[in-house]
């Protein structure tokens, strides 16, 4: 649905751009292609790596790892799995809600979702190519620590 909307918006803007200035539109498509081509090797690498990771760490394995643990230990396991994997939202959230039903705590789930989204070990090479090593390590490190804070607040509120 959202993807569809994105295509419509892009299409309309591209049409307006073409009406206004043909050369600039050509230039923007050239830049789009160049930016894509520039990052394509890393994209393909990331996708292969995620495929392999998730073949080992499939939803059942993740459920066994997170669901069976509790307290701090469980949160630590959840945070590590969340940091190294990269699961799309439409898989991650149903998984999280299934984990809750099978007995995992809200805090483990919160730290899992939070690290899953904010900490990206697999995508670090692309991040470093953009922001450099230092900023990448600092941002991911802070996001990792912050995920525990999020879990703590969730545990307090719910």
């Amino acid at each position: 649905m959202f993807t569809c909307l994105l295509y419509v918006v892009t299409g309309v803007l591209l049409f307006l751009s073409y009406r206004k200035d043909r050369n600039k539109t050509k230039m923007s498509l050239k830049k789009a292609w160049k930016a894509f081509e520039n990052i394509l090797p890393q994209f393909l690498g990331i996708i292969l790596l995620i495929g392999m990771l998730l073949a080992f760490l499939n939803p059942e394995v993740i459920a066994a790892l997170i669901g069976g643990q509790s307290g701090w230990q469980g949160m630590l396991v959840a945070s590590i799995i969340g940091s190294i994997t990269l699961i799309p939202g439409f898989v991650a959230f149903p998984l999280a809600s299934a984990l809750l039903k099978s007995g995992a705590g809200f805090m483990q789930i919160a730290v899992f979702i939070s690290t899953l989204m904010m900490v990206g070990i697999v995508t670090m090479p692309v991040e470093m190519a953009t922001f450099g090593k230092k900023a990448t390590f600092v941002r991911n490190g802070l996001a990792f620590a912050f995920s525990f804070f999020v879990a703590w607040v969730i545990g307090w509120v719910l």
């Binding site: 892009t10 591209l14 751009s17 539109t25 923007s28 498509l29 830049k31 789009a32």
Partner: peptide, 14 residues
Amino acid sequence: LPPIFILLGMLDVW
């Protein structure tokens, strides 16, 4: 990815 990168290109140019 195609719409994301095309929007990026238009942002850059316009």
